[in-house]
Design a protein around this nucleic acid. Structure first.
Lengths: 343, 343
DNA sequence: ACCATGTCTTGGAACGATCCAGAGTTCTAC
DNA sequence: GTAGAACTCTGGATCGTTCCAAGACATGGT
């Protein structure tokens, strides 16, 4: 039995329905949608009318089956970290979804076991559910990118290929060594000279990167870094412990922290010592999290340009999907310093 | 030309490839995947072997085309609010993606113009891209749900149908009047009697709801609420202004805030007055945001059970998709109070 | 009038899965 | 030993779209 009506029935209208209403063939309707220039103006108008009248929209599954493109980008849900100030990834997801929408792509969020960095990718890849992936935690090692490459999957990464300098996939990253540098110079300008660093362990690539910015700024201005650096875990309690130790020993007048989480740890230490943030001591954090934005009197923080990063990634994705052999140069973006009451 | 190899070629293997390798028909392979009990044990084993050998995974587009089910749940990206402590939706997205994954559903994140609450839904609906939606901001009015209902779309909502008490779609919400009540009672237990309320404007349904919990707790314990309530916008600056006013006028010893954002506004006021949070004055917030978790000495906050909410929603979705006429009763969950240094 | 040229349109095949109806096989019971 | 049921398995049709190759039509030059 042929489909009845189309605009009356509950089932969505199909190409054939539109074709019938407009008095043309299916292919002509398809052309009206995908290659309008192939049609004569009056035919196009007639078909367009029928499309509007029926509220026709191509069926995604059918189109996807034929063209082998889903117009979906896979993004693995970053692990949620309670008790920290790390929300950069959430902001990134937001801006990325928005940027992707502008070019007709939607984002497929999927979940993967946090213990296994590869979990979840395989299924989507094999079922051809997504056209490409966005990989985020490249600083944890090249496992994901290496594996994806071996499976010939298309992907871009937010984060440089730390451990594989010759990787060929497009990537976008933020120069956070530079971020630490401008943070430190901002404090120097404000008259500080004993500026401490509270960062992560030596084996953290991200941590060493950021630290180098602080070191560089200090040395450039002829300031000593001796006894002013400490390295610890990325948690509030260890940030507090590190601040306690360094405040007792070296008495710095300002602190640069590798993350807003560590900065919050410092705040806990100050709270206990009844020191006033921004008056008795200056603090600068990283990531410009909601916490940095809202804590009184506001924490000066290095803000990564996530909107720009998202746009660059989408641009790279488009190129990559258009020309499979596309090898983009990596893009390094510069963060800006958002100055608030803490400095 | 027939597909060559399958396990050698770059193209993913198909049902036919598996069938050929296992020496059975396509349908048998399909049954092995979807209805294993229909097969004889030895046949199943043979097919399973072939599937493993080829790394076969059903093509999502093809399956979706035939079964009219995409196994995707649409979720419109909640608007990002900078400069506030509102990150509940991010936590919700996290837990929802995780809960959905357990039942084989993935989440399709899409973007919609913040000015138009309906933007984005239509396209996905018409192209049959998703099986159902999760709607989140029901307190902004019933526009979305009414429209979806009129289009016969399947959906569940996180948030009760505020303006349509007779709505029939499944929903899950958190009883935040109760939240305000336990927050207030917690402060009463701690010995406070002059407990102020800093909330939202009268036309905010959510705001009045929460306020009623405070009023109820106060009256139950024979405490007066006169001059202790203020209503304002959900922003840090208005929270600060409200706190300034009420601290000057009524001198309460504790404050209950309708959101963590307002609580942060209060903190700004305290900071200026050099009052110590948790010692000179107690503050309780709402949502248990990262900010509440990390600010020294920690803000006591009403924590919505988002994990449970996500699970309930996924359960409702499953029922809804299994039986289209399914009309679930709404589910109201109780929040818990996370006690920290601020009280 | 004829054919070459280009534009516009057409019906059939294909993408890879599931649904359906029926064929082949095995098992049970009389 | 055979009918009948129960269990396995098969081939063809189908979902809605795009690709393909070729047909229909108008236009212009000889």
């Amino acid at each position: 039995m042929p489909r009845s009506g189309g605009h009356i029935s509950a089932a969505p209208p199909t190409l054939a329905d539109v074709a019938e209403l407009a008095g043309v063939s299916r292919q002509t309707v398809s052309n009206a949608v995908n290659n309008p220039d192939l049609l004569r103006a009056d035919t196009l108008a007639r078909v367009q009318d029928a499309i509007d009248k029926l509220g026709y929209q191509p069926n995604r599954a059918a189109r996807s089956l034929r063209t082998r493109a889903s117009h979906l980008i896979g993004l693995r849900m970053p692990a949620l970290q309670e008790g920290t100030a790390n929300a950069m990834m959430d902001r990134f997801v937001h801006t990325f979804v928005e940027a992707a929408a502008e070019t007709g792509y939607h984002v497929l969020l999927f979940y993967g076991d946090p213990a296994d960095p590869l979990d979840g990718y395989d299924e989507l890849l094999r079922s051809t559910a997504v056209d490409a992936f966005v990989v985020t935690d490249t600083h944890l090692g090249g496992q994901q990118t290496t594996w994806l490459q071996s499976r010939r999957a298309r992907f871009v990464s937010f984060g440089r290929p730390w451990t594989q300098p010759d990787a060929k996939h497009p990537w976008v990253d933020v120069d956070l060594a530079y971020g630490a540098e401008i943070a430190t110079e901002h404090l120097i300008e404000r008259g500080h000279s004993k500026i401490a660093w509270i960062g992560w362990h030596k084996d953290s690539l991200l941590g060493e990167e950021r630290r180098s910015g602080w070191t560089h700024a200090m040395h450039t201005h002829g300031l000593s870094t001796t006894g002013l650096a400490s390295r610890t875990e990325d948690s509030i309690s260890s940030g507090k412990a590190a601040a306690d130790a360094i405040l007792d020993e070296t008495e710095p007048t300002a602190l640069v922290c590798a993350s807003d989480t560590l900065a919050m740890g410092v705040l806990h230490s100050l709270f206990e010592r009844r020191l006033r943030l921004g008056e008795d001591i200056a603090v600068v954090g990283f990531d410009d999290s909601q916490v940095a934005q809202t804590v009184p009197p506001g924490i000066t923080s290095v803000r990564p340009p996530l909107e720009e990063a998202a746009r660059e990634l989408v641009k790279a994705l488009e190129e990559l999907l258009a020309t499979p052999s596309y090898a983009a140069p990596g893009v390094m973006l510069k963060p800006v310093l958002t100055v608030r009451g803490s400095s």
